[in-house]
Write a protein that binds this DNA or RNA. Structure first.
Lengths: 229, 229
DNA sequence: CGCGGCTTTGATGTTCATCAAGTAAAGTGG
DNA sequence: CCACTTTACTTGATGAACATCAAAGCCGCG
């Protein structure tokens, strides 16, 4: 786990996030920023821990999840660059309600929550930016959840494949960043049935499978499966 | 549908929501407030419509839901007094992503979104209040969704009954404010199976049913069913 | 009264979880 | 580097959970 102080001059996030700040304010917040690298599999935030930082993802891919009393976790969503991974419970709880783990090598920036709070109180526009970002995030999560709920096994697996293809990798060929078990935890089905469904899709010449590698050969059919079932 | 201008002096919401405002600011916003009554069944907001107002519930009970391409809607959550029913998509979309309907006679206050926005820009503390409220709301929704997803038929029905008993009516005896079909739309099962399960719970002397009236006679067993299944 | 919406129950088949057993892949220690 | 262990993946068989179809009862309302 590397640990270097972030050079704000080159940070592409500044313009997105701090568009409502003047230089002085940016300095005040950014001087406290810490950039950190996480390897695939590493835990970034743990459910139950006190919230002291405000974290966003600079690059990589993470999963938000919640552990249950069974062995099976529940994966809430995946988040990519420029997503604010600690956004969900930051402002209504003192402790994280969800865990976050890197599913690809990732870099995250964090700043003290107290500083962010202070800036928000002084600057309504800044608070509003966060509000918008948060609204977006939760809207997306809720949408995905409801979409998945409408479908069954086949439709859910198809939806998941299309999600990674369209939203994350923007290609018909990609490496699944998650295990079969994690897919199951995301779509709310069992490991075995996820595998079975992938195999069936392969037999029907809709996808090709090379371990974690996926090649979507018939996107139209996959799309239809995702809509119908 | 009644329509009177809201008298802010008696409004219990003021202290909750506007705690960060001085009197002048409160006046500025409240002078624009409109109070409106909705009868059970009436639509308050419709998915797809432009967002122009900021609405919160003064009393009553509403459901948030999303229509699908089937006949079955998806109910996202129920909201009671002091909940900000338009909070979900207000800040990230120009149009409502969900519909809201009264499931009991309700009163809602609304103000122009543009005024609220203006106040937020000028007052970080106010923006922060909204942020907290919103974070709370989405956290609750997500929690419920994930809890339901963990359970199956029996557990979901039990969870739903306990929700109305504990969260909404705070009594073991209450009238279900929703139809059997709406229960199904909330817990993501079919109408028939909801009815069957309720009947089984009745046969097992866990609840009594008088049409929409429910009396929970064995809360412990219901609790256990909700946890296990 | 009769109609339409809501509710109930039963029968049937589909979808899915679970159990079991085996293979492949990946990490571990000598 | 190889034997060993562990973890991830795969397939089949079985029964449970659930959706769907069908039919009928109830209840309020015009």
């Amino acid at each position: 786990m590397g640990l270097i102080s972030c050079k704000c001059e080159g940070c592409e996030l500044k313009s997105l996030f701090f568009k409502n700040f003047d230089t002085e304010e940016i300095e005040a917040v950014c001087s406290q920023k810490i950039e950190r690298d996480y390897k695939k599999g590493e835990i970034i935030l743990k459910e139950g821990e006190p919230i002291e930082e405000f974290i966003y993802l600079k690059n990589g891919l993470v999963k938000l999840f919640k552990s249950t009393n069974t062995e099976q976790d529940q994966i809430i969503c995946f988040a990519g660059p420029l997503d604010f991974v600690s956004l969900l419970s930051v402002f209504s709880n003192n402790n994280y309600q969800y865990s976050v783990a890197a599913i690809e090598d990732s870099t995250a920036c964090s700043m003290q929550l107290s500083k962010v709070n202070q800036s928000m109180n002084n600057n309504g526009l800044f608070a509003r930016s966060i509000l918008e970002k948060m609204s977006e995030t939760t809207d997306k999560i809720l949408k995905t959840t409801l979409e998945l709920r409408q479908r069954r096994l086949y439709g859910r697996v198809a939806y998941m494949l299309l999600f990674f293809s369209n939203e994350i990798y923007k290609s018909n060929e990609f490496e699944l960043p998650v295990s079969r078990k994690e897919i199951a935890e995301f779509i709310g089905m069992t490991l075995e049935n996820v595998i079975r469904t992938l195999s069936e899709l392969r037999k029907d010449n809709i996808i090709k499978i090379y371990g974690k590698g996926i090649l979507i050969t018939d996107k139209q059919k996959l799309q239809k499966l995702s809509e119908l079932s």
